[in-house]
Simulated assay, not measured.
Amino acid sequence: MLQHPQVKGPGVGLLGFSLGADICLSMASFLKNISATVSINGSGSSGNSTIHYKQISIPPLGLDLKRIKVTFSGILDIVDIRNDIVEKFENPSIIPIEKAQGPILFIAGQDDHNWRSDLNVQTASERLQAHGKEKPRIILYPGTGHYIEPPYFSVCPASVHKLFNKVVIWGGELRAHSKAQVDAWKQILSFFSQHLGGTHKGVSPKL
């Protein structure tokens, strides 16, 4: 990416959602030249499989399928299946984001039913501060579910989950979620403009 003609450098920015957010947080923690990272509804921990980087392994946090709930319509609600995070600051399943060189923007929906993203970002913030880092920027959106996508994308309240091969609920109230997608896009562009050497106060979303 650093060799791409449209990449200004000297570093790059990362934007990830859900598992992609955790991949971005891992990259920011272990790789150089990551100037800014945006995590959208990430967990901040190793999910269902071990994260490997050279000789480093981050074991999965684990889950308990007995905690799956079934809604009145038969759709699964998996929000509580992941194991609780104990020893927040030294838990081996937590991605060591305190090693990241660039700033991190955390975006979370407070009605996320994939996992409790609002609690995850709070844990991440506490971990960073416990390691002497500044409190990161956190944006929480009430009434907003898991799939915070670019503006004007259709809201996805439920769909088939690859892990379970069944339909699960993602959360989000239509109006609140739609408004969050519009605002989050602006916040992301502003964050990257600030930390990737942008000069414009207002950045065109080109949508």
Rank of each mutant, 00 (worst) to 15 (best):
C156G: 07
P5V: 05
I75P: 02
H177K: 00
I51S: 02
G62A: 06
C24P: 09
K206Q: 15
P92N: 03
L19P: 01
L140T: 06
V168I: 14
L207H: 08
F164S: 05
P151G: 15
F72D: 13
T199I: 14
I95N: 13
K54I: 04
D22V: 11
P151W: 14
G11Y: 01
L76A: 07
V203G: 05
I51L: 08
G145S: 04
D118E: 03
S43T: 04
G198P: 06
G42H: 03
V167S: 13
F89H: 14
L128E: 05
L65V: 11
R82M: 08
D118Q: 04
N114P: 08
V70H: 15
F30K: 11
F191T: 06
K32T: 15
R82K: 11
N165I: 02
P136M: 00
G11F: 01
S49D: 07
A28Q: 06
A36E: 01
S73M: 13
L2A: 11
G44P: 08
E134Y: 14
L19A: 10
R137S: 10
G143I: 00
S35Q: 12
N48T: 03
G16S: 15
F72R: 10
P136R: 00
F164M: 07
L63R: 13
S26D: 13
I169S: 05
Q129A: 04
H195L: 06
A100R: 04
G20E: 09
E90N: 13
R116H: 12
P103Y: 04
K32M: 07
I148C: 15
S35I: 01
R127Y: 02
K69R: 15
A184V: 00
N114Y: 11
I58N: 07
S39Q: 01
N48P: 00
S204L: 11
C156I: 03
V38F: 07
L196S: 04
L128K: 06
Y53G: 11
F17W: 11
P157S: 06
I107R: 12
S159L: 09
S29Y: 03
V167W: 02
F89Q: 09
K99E: 07
N120R: 12
I148F: 15
H177P: 01
H113R: 07
G47E: 05
L163A: 15
V70P: 11
N83S: 09
C24V: 12
N165C: 07
K162G: 11
S125I: 01
S39A: 05
Q55H: 08
A124C: 03
H52C: 05
I40W: 12
K166Y: 09
Q122C: 08
E87Q: 08
A28H: 05
K162D: 11
P142K: 02
Q101G: 09
K206E: 12
N33Q: 10
K66D: 12
L2W: 05
L25R: 13
Q6N: 06
H131M: 07
S49P: 00
A108K: 03
V12P: 14
H146M: 12
S45N: 08
A158V: 00
R127G: 00
K201A: 10
A184M: 07
S204P: 10
K201M: 10
V160M: 14
G9H: 07
H131K: 15
A100F: 03
E98Y: 14
Q101L: 03
L2V: 04
I58Y: 06
V121H: 07
S29K: 03
G171V: 00
K69G: 08
H52T: 01
K166A: 15
G198F: 13
K162A: 15
L174S: 00
K8I: 04
T71Y: 06
L140E: 02
